[in-house]
Design a protein around this nucleic acid. Structure first.
Lengths: 110, 110
DNA sequence: TTGACATACCTAGAAATACTATGTATAATA
DNA sequence: TATTATACATAGTATTTCTAGGTATGTCAA
């Protein structure tokens, strides 16, 4: 019943797009694969986030025909989005490092 | 204006109490110190969480006179709380490990 | 002594974030 | 041809944390 704790959705989304352009559904599948199924991001979570990233100019969307004949909406990480990714990565390292410090009983010597 | 992302409040609170009994205000100060001021937990966040942990039997509260003469409300981690802490720690390692896997481009070989 | 500040606890309401549930539509497959 | 997987989307709900406010005591300087 407990909510699954996926909080850094933006970081994860930006990170997925760093390697290659992807469409939403693909990102969900890829995220599950790369995280060994620790993350099971819902469509109701990802799509609004992608729309937000697009509005901020971090990603650009374009439609492309899939080999299946079906049209997909691909997202591309812009230069601005690359900067945002670097910032979010730094924030994550700071955050996770701090949690680990606390778990170890605190960073004694500074 | 952005909300500070402290999500694992329970984990942090339980972890602080693993070493010694503490009172709320002290926990906030200690958390800031141990995290090198990465975490600045608000009272409006901590106190409701402590009350919840108490209701679940993870911590026990008792009042004690401080050297200043003032009464403080100390929290003690119960055996049940120690178990909860171990579980939360494991969840954190799983979660942070998965984020790092995704940032690295995915855990290729499983 | 009094005014400011740090300490110490608490709660109500707002904001942010992610989930559930649902709707639509197409392609593949049994 | 019916079901499943693919693919996008949004409305409403739930959870978590913050903001803002309240109450009260101890310390210290002016």
């Amino acid at each position: 019943m407990k909510k699954q704790a996926i909080e850094h959705t933006r970081l994860l989304a930006l990170s997925l797009l760093a390697g290659e352009d992807m469409y939403g559904y693909q990102m969900i599948v890829e995220l599950a694969r790369r995280s060994n199924h620790t993350f099971d991001m819902k469509e109701g979570t990802l799509y609004p986030v992608l729309h937000g990233l697009e509005q901020e100019g971090f990603v650009e969307a374009y439609r492309k025909q899939a080999p299946t004949g079906r049209e997909r909406k691909y997202y591309h990480l812009t230069r601005k989005g690359q900067g945002a990714l670097r910032e979010e990565e730094a924030a994550w390292r700071r955050y996770s490092g701090a949690v680990n410090d606390v778990l170890r009983g605190g960073a004694e010597a500074v």
